[in-house]
């Protein structure tokens, strides 16, 4: 066994050398639309952007992704993070990787962002894709940044054609999304879009909620939805999650319960699995 491991390590090492050797050729050969050469040392520090960058980047181009992406509760690509270093969103560790492009989500702490920019690192901040339409645009944007337009075009087309195949759902009635601490998601959120795409009317809309905010449990129960989709349980325990097991919530549509999972977290092609999961 140990011999095998050594051999595979040796192969991987050799492959890395080859990739490294091939890199300049690749990078010089495919400039980004702005005319600059494609970045060769990319660090992504946002769970959702990581998952698109991992699908688009050339071998060896993406150095590091966020530690959350390796968490199987949060990320559908958790088992594919082995080739990457995991970062924890700290300026120091990212600077030491000498990146020529950092991709960050708009939740990045302002202090970290200004620190990295002061250190001369190019940081691109992208808003989250919070609708099905925005996913395609996000794929294109990251493809452009990485100089991988062809892969982006392929990924976007594949996603959009599979989405179109799902898009004529039957009307399934009313549903409510309910997360820890009594939060719900309305129509202008990714979770709301997933619900709609699966053929459900969202009761949050009845209450004039289109973003993610608190909906008192009483109001949810009074709307009497046909289905309740509750948030997923994180490891460990909390009082905030206890509301998802409240007897009043269980009493609503007890036979048609569902839970959000890692496919619901991010605007990536994996939302198709979330939509399919509701059927």
């Amino acid at each position: 066994m140990r011999g095998c491991v050594r051999i595979s390590d040796a192969i991987r090492g050799a492959a890395a050398v080859l990739v490294a050797a091939a890199m300049p050729a690749f990078a010089d050969g495919s400039p980004t639309p702005s005319g600059e050469p494609a970045p060769r040392r990319v660090v992504s520090m946002n769970l959702c952007l990581d998952q698109i960058a991992m699908r688009l980047a050339a071998p060896g181009q993406l150095l590091s992704v966020s530690a959350l992406t390796a968490d199987p509760d949060m990320s559908p690509l958790a088992d594919r993070t082995a080739p990457y270093r995991l970062n924890h969103g700290r300026a120091e560790e990212i600077y030491l990787m000498r990146p020529d492009l950092v991709i960050a989500g708009s939740w990045i702490s302002p202090a970290t962002l200004s620190m990295m920019r002061n250190l001369g690192i190019r940081v691109e901040v992208l808003p989250p894709a919070d609708s099905l339409e925005a996913i395609g645009e996000q794929i294109d944007r990251i493809g452009d940044m990485l100089g991988r337009e062809d892969q982006a075009q392929w990924l976007r087309r594949d996603f959009e054609s599979r989405l179109a195949a799902l898009r004529q759902p039957p009307e399934r009635g009313e549903a409510a999304i309910y997360y820890a601490n009594g939060y719900t998601s309305g129509g202008k959120t990714l979770a709301g879009a997933i619900l709609r795409a699966a053929g459900y009317d969202n009761i949050a809309t009845e209450y004039g909620i289109d973003d993610t905010r608190v909906l008192p449990l009483e109001k949810l129960v009074m709307a009497d939805p046909d289905r309740v989709v509750s948030g997923s349980h994180m490891p460990g325990r909390s009082q905030g999650e206890a509301i998802m097991a409240h007897p009043a919530l269980i009493a609503v549509a007890p036979d048609a319960r569902a839970e959000t999972d890692r496919d619901w977290v991010c605007g990536t092609p994996d939302v198709l699995d979330a939509i399919a999961g509701l059927e």
Binding site: G236, S238, Q239, E241
Partner: peptide, 13 residues
Amino acid sequence: LSPNPYAAAEIMF
């Protein structure tokens, strides 16, 4: 110390 992301917010409760 809890691994749960909501736990620390419950100090107030």
